[in-house]
């Protein structure tokens, strides 16, 4: 009894430290990947000075952000102003709890893991809204209003697509969803055409929703630097801005993790050999790279076209996807 209790405590501490480290590492090194990647896309060098190939640059960035003064403008609602970055970052970290990195590596194996992920992920928009509102800045207010409309519009297709996947898998347990996809890449959900011929389209739509949910270009209404200066983050400086930044990348990692689990077979190997966390990370980082790649390829979508895309294309198609899945399940 006591032994189990101690082990449980040790497990909790281990996973808390592990997830925090994972989030911190990703947030800082994805920034570096973004800077390096964007530089190479644009035929530039990117950071090279701090450490070999600029590898210690994130440390320098973090030190810089920590040392900077946090400016609190006049008329700001101080409590909400500081709450906002935390409200954005915390849910993303919480969601990491359910992600199965390997057959035995998951902080908590919930039966309703998928539901928890989407419940907490919806918090993200709340934080940005509060931040934009509390800043008492017109640019920030406008951006915050945009973000709410955007995230609500994209929450719906995301969930509809996920519902279709859940209908196929029959479970909300992420570990089980991965386990069902064992045996080779043709068993992954993205290629289960026997269950639903629209599955690759569903994955593509999920990816678009992922970009929009995480406010990434070409859907970066929250920043829209050429229109709204820095959008909802206009008044944030120093580490408060740094936390928003971390949250952005954490949300990307989380979205890519979920996409990997739902569609790309999680930690399963494409050829049925040596499954394990390395496959999970490989797929996840490939998706992260694609997110960055998309950002540096396209201009920003207009605000109303973004909503049009969601309401007029993504939602009808994802509804059709659900009906098709249901039919396929019933008929075959």
């Amino acid at each position: 009894m006591r032994m189990e209790f101690v082990l449980e405590i040790a497990r909790v501490v281990l996973y808390v430290v592990g997830i925090l480290a994972f989030v911190g590492f990703n947030a800082s090194y994805l920034v570096l990947l973004e800077r390096k990647g964007s530089a190479r896309f644009q035929l530039r060098h990117g950071p090279t000075e701090v450490g070999p190939f600029g590898l210690i640059q994130p440390v320098a960035d973090a030190v810089k952000l920590l040392c900077k003064q946090i400016l609190i403008p006049k008329n700001v609602d101080v409590i909400l102003f500081f709450m906002a970055p935390i409200l954005v970052l915390l849910p993303a970290i919480l969601c990491m709890v359910t992600i199965p990195f390997g057959a035995t590596i998951a902080a908590r194996n919930f039966n309703l893991g998928l539901l928890m992920v989407f419940a907490f992920a919806a918090f993200n928009v709340f934080g940005i809204l509060i931040g934009g509102w509390a800043s008492h800045n017109k640019y920030a207010n406008l951006a915050a209003a945009r973000v709410v409309a955007q995230n609500i519009a994209y929450e719906i297709p995301t969930l509809l697509i996920v519902v279709a996947v859940v209908m196929v898998t029959g479970t909300f347990n992420l570990q089980e969803i991965v386990a069902q996809q064992a045996g080779g890449f043709w068993r992954w959900n993205i290629l289960r055409l026997d269950l639903n011929p629209l599955q690759p389209v569903a994955f593509l739509m999920y990816f678009i929703c992922l970009l929009a949910e995480t406010n990434r270009a070409p859907f970066d209404m929250v920043e829209a630097e050429s229109e709204l200066v820095a959008g909802a983050y206009t008044e944030y400086s120093g580490m408060t801005f740094g936390v928003f930044f971390m949250a952005e990348y954490t949300n990307i990692v989380l979205g890519c993790c979920v996409a990997t689990v739902l569609f790309l077979g999680g930690w399963q190997c494409p050829f049925g050999l040596v499954p394990g966390p390395h496959w999970f990370l490989l797929k996840m980082y490939a998706l992260c790279f694609t997110v960055i790649w998309v950002r540096w390829s396209f201009p920003r979508v207009q605000f109303y076209n973004l909503l049009n895309l969601s309401w007029k294309i993504l939602i009808p198609v994802s509804l059709a996807n659900i009906i098709l899945t249901a039919l396929m399940l019933k008929v075959f």
Partner: peptide, 16 residues
């Protein structure tokens, strides 16, 4: 097509 153009440039030498 746009993404293909950027990925091709990823492997070109830098000009700066």
């Amino acid at each position: 097509v746009g993404m293909k153009i950027t990925i091709c440039n990823l492997f070109r030498p830098t000009v700066t």
